[in-house]
Design a binder for these strands. Structure first.
Lengths: 236, 236
DNA sequence: AATTTTGATTGATAAATGTCAATAGGTAAA
DNA sequence: TTTACCTATTGACATTTATCAATCAAAATT
């Protein structure tokens, strides 16, 4: 690979599904306008309702996407490296529907939205990748809606734990990757109710102490949670 | 316009945002493989989990998209003419996340998913349209999630009525376009609870008799509903 | 180490929502 | 018309979830 090529400066980005197939020249153009910044924790990166000037790419750290209405707040999603966020707003040149703030020290690439739209129009490989990414995002939100509408809070927690377990390698013991109050908000319940949901899962094969989760009875938990690939398998 | 062109056979489809910009030759190819069918009411068009063989376009009638889990069912969306549905599954060649059934006699175009994907790859205008459509769909689902997580059932109903009113022209009186039990399911509540929510809105400027809705006090309803463009404006 | 702050948990209670059963009303079929 | 069926509504009650207040635990700060 040519060491002069800009992709050598951004190998993590170039290797993302979204950018891996596009033409080298176009990738260069995109990266010429890119800003890379380090943000401390608890920084408001973008605010709900603002115009979408940049496509964001999280390189390290983590970001919470939240929405507000009438003084209430809910966590909509957790972004983990390496992935983009707020792609749809960038594409549509429409206001952000969610706010984003860092949870830890985070390294983030900002790509001017206008550049993304321009290159999209002239690079069909890039266009294909954007469509795949958007379709994936859409299906994730649909699955989340099904989770919210079809399950009780305890069932949502049980299935969340099974998904986390899978993501952590499948062992019976793993750590929660999230503060409990944020997890509660993401799952659509209060922190108090999350505590009670954890207690309620004790009889279904789960023990939690602090961040530590132990699935003491996998079969029992699966029987209770009844996970479905059409809700819980985030890869299809 | 050339009367021989196949678009003359499908003017309603050609005029859809999704197809209006694509090359004539590609549109012809798409339509060559198209089936147009009339379905009676209450027909299951597609089932959750099935492979997505066709992109569907609703020409007349109406379609309900529902999802199930553990014996529970919820209405995810209502499709009205003229629009496509289940685009993301077609693009990703992934199983449907929702079932679809007709609510009334419906005329529906079926486009083989493989054709859509093939032409997508060779027509950048079509690709652009698909991206716009997907981004729109994504944002709609996000708004719906915000509605579900941030509002009580009564607040959801109040805002739904304001959106319906706007869609019906803005007059104080309009008809519900949906059976109440389906509306209840779509709004994420039981039919009983919907009845009570309607009653609860009487003191906030709404009177409902049968399908007939009268906003007796617009200001009062708006004050209670507190609609937000970032949830309720489905065009941005 | 002591203090302060923050998050988690618990108990008591309230509010929201769901379930069940009964009834009313309207529509469609016989 | 009569009957049958389906939907909507209502009341009583159960369950789920949220709220409030107090306490506890852990982490951060002084």
């Amino acid at each position: 690979m040519n060491p002069e090529a800009p992709e050598s400066d951004f190998p993590e980005i170039r290797s993302l599904d979204l950018f891996s197939d596009m033409e080298s020249e176009h990738f260069k153009m995109l990266m010429r306008g890119a800003y890379v910044q380090n943000f401390p924790p608890q920084i408001e990166l973008i605010s709900e309702g603002d115009p979408s000037d940049f496509l964001h790419i999280l390189l390290t750290g983590s970001v919470d996407l939240v929405s507000q209405w009438n003084g209430r707040t809910t966590s909509m999603a957790r972004v983990r490296p390496i992935s983009t966020f707020i792609l749809a707003a960038t594409i549509k040149d429409a206001p952000y529907l969610m706010s984003a703030h860092t949870l830890e020290k985070s390294r983030i690439v900002l790509l001017p939205s206008q550049d993304v739209r321009t290159i999209f129009d002239s690079d069909s490989k890039f266009a294909r990748s954007i469509v795949n990414e958007l379709a994936q995002c859409y299906r994730s939100v649909v699955k989340n809606t099904k989770d919210l509408k079809l399950r009780t809070s305890r069932e949502r927690l049980a299935n969340y734990l099974l998904r986390q377990q899978k993501g952590a390698g499948g062992a019976a013991q793993f750590e929660l990757s999230t503060e409990k109050r944020r997890l509660a908000s993401f799952l659509g319940m209060t922190p108090e109710n999350l505590s009670r949901a954890f207690k309620g899962l004790q009889t279904h094969g789960v023990t939690v102490t602090g961040q530590n989760v132990i699935i003491t009875d996998q079969k029992r938990l699966v029987a209770f949670a009844n996970p479905s690939p059409l809700i819980d398998d985030r890869s299809i």
